[in-house]
Amino acid sequence: MNSEQNNYAPKIRGIFSILIFIALWEFSIRLGWMPGNIFFPPFSEVIGEIWEMLFDDLLIDSYKSSFIRVIIGFLVGATSGVIIGIWMGWSQKVYDWTKPIISILYPIPALGWLPLLMLIIGINEVLPVVIIFICSFFPIVYNTVKGIKEVKPEFINAARLLGASDFVILKKVVIPQALPYIFIGLKLESGAAWRTVVAAEMIAIPTGIGALMMRAENLMRIDIILVCLIILSVMCLIFESFFSYLEHRMTGEWN
């Protein structure tokens, strides 16, 4: 009984903190505590707005644009990041050749590439996909390399002495043990992909959630901005939770 209570307590506290936040938002505006409340709608109005906008083509189209960009950019970035990370982690030669380049490019924020890419690619659908690719690729490579290199040599030696080929060692011993590190990269970057796409759309791309927010700002439609922010938050959360779930499914039993 006691341990059950302890298990639920953090969740209950979490739910309460959100409820308190919503209540403060709602009542501080309704009771006129917030300055400039004419622009800032209470929570209930924002929810109403979301409901209305769910049937509005503008929001759906914007969301769709952003979603497709994130999915394509992240899938390509994550897949290539994991593959190259495994290759770099496994082969010291590949690591020696590629590590300096990765080290130089890794610290540059994805949005830092934007002006250059605008000149090279132009403003079209490829631009945000490439930005998301860059945003996902480098951290996922980094984490994957770390995960592969963290596998103790004695596991590899043990597998080798039991007769396993390099391919079997990678498949059955090394990659599974690197999964917790690979998932750290995937979780963080799946959220970061959303944050980056919205920022890129605000600056350079005329469609998508970010662009919608900028248009709403021009029209002083705080409700639309808030709806977009909530969607952004929920999408980050869903993507990160998806990878947490996948990680748990793949490593939860033994890790």
Partner: peptide
């Protein structure tokens, strides 16, 4: 190669594959 030498090696740390 080590794989074909037909030796059994018991490591100090046991080296049991944690994912299996």
């Amino acid at each position: 190669s080590p794989a074909k030498r037909d030796v059994g090696y018991l490591f100090q740390s046991f080296a049991l594959f944690p994912n299996l």
